[in-house]
């Protein structure tokens, strides 16, 4: 569904963060990117959503090149990103936040309104807190609103940047449910997750990155079961540390 071909990207004057990325996130599957801090995982997502213009290589949505297009153009093609932070508009209401998800299709008023009603039924929180400022929500609730906003466009691909960051275990479970629900509706999910076990348990496919390159791709459960990969990237569990 989304294919990266020799993608090179970086910020400003600094050197390249991504130094030739090749992998495919297959249609209707959940793909999880893992790797150490600063490996370039979030940068891959940004290059995909149009927030960052690639310096080289291609980003393909199906057969169409989307690398270097504007965020609005990419959104119209059904690729939506849920960012790590700063995604919501704290001074606007929950309803305004969700409705703005359809900004690129703002002229279709009736359709957007209907879509909002549908979403408000799926996420009771939206209906309950519709008139409250987003700033008054807790971390988990903000995530939910961001998810709901992403759904306004009926996306084909959802990009998730560390969906569980700073969330308590209970909220993590809700996020996991939301991701599974998304996926069951046929949405392709490409996510970055620092909580490796969480990400890989949820995902079908795994991509391991380090230093701006892809080290490994494969089935998520196989990677999770691989003891070598485990030691390298997930860290031994603290319990093991004590006994060794």
């Amino acid at each position: 569904m989304i294919t990266f071909k020799n993608l090179v990207a970086g910020y400003g004057r600094a050197g390249d963060i991504l130094r030739g990325i090749d992998f495919t996130a297959p249609e209707s599957a959940i793909t999880c990117i893992v790797g150490p801090n600063g490996a370039g995982k979030s940068t891959v997502l940004k290059a995909c959503s149009g927030l960052l213009r690639p310096r080289g290589g291609q980003v393909l949505l199906g057969d169409e090149e989307i690398g270097g297009r504007s965020p609005a153009e990419i959104l119209r093609r059904g690729v939506v990103q849920v960012p790590q932070h700063h995604g919501l508009f704290p001074s606007l209401t929950v309803r305004e936040n969700v409705m703005l998800g359809a900004f690129v299709n703002r002229r279709e008023r009736d359709r957007n309104r209907r879509r909002y009603e549908e979403i408000a039924q799926v996420f009771p929180l939206i209906a309950e807190r519709a008139g409250d400022k987003a700033a008054s929500l807790s971390g988990g609730q903000r995530r939910t609103v961001e998810f709901a906003r992403a759904l306004m466009l009926r996306p084909r691909v959802v990009l998730l940047d560390e969906p569980t960051l700073g969330l308590d275990p209970k909220a993590c479970k809700q996020i996991a449910d939301s991701i599974t629900t998304l996926n069951k509706e046929g949405v392709t999910v490409l996510m970055v997750e620092q909580n490796v076990r969480f990400g890989l348990t949820l995902a079908d496919h795994a991509v391991v990155m380090e230093g701006g390159r892809v080290l490994h791709t494969g089935a998520a459960d196989a990677l999770l079961a691989d003891p070598d990969m485990g030691r390298l990237f997930f860290g031994a569990a603290p319990e093991q540390q004590e006994t060794s």
Partner: peptide, 23 residues
């Protein structure tokens, strides 16, 4: 108006605005 909405959204979070396709 949508212009007003984009202005208020951008004022609130420019990163968020960029994400939803606001120029």
């Amino acid at each position: 108006t949508w212009l007003g909405q984009s202005i208020r959204a951008t004022a609130s979070s420019s990163e968020g605005a960029r994400l939803i396709g606001i120029q």
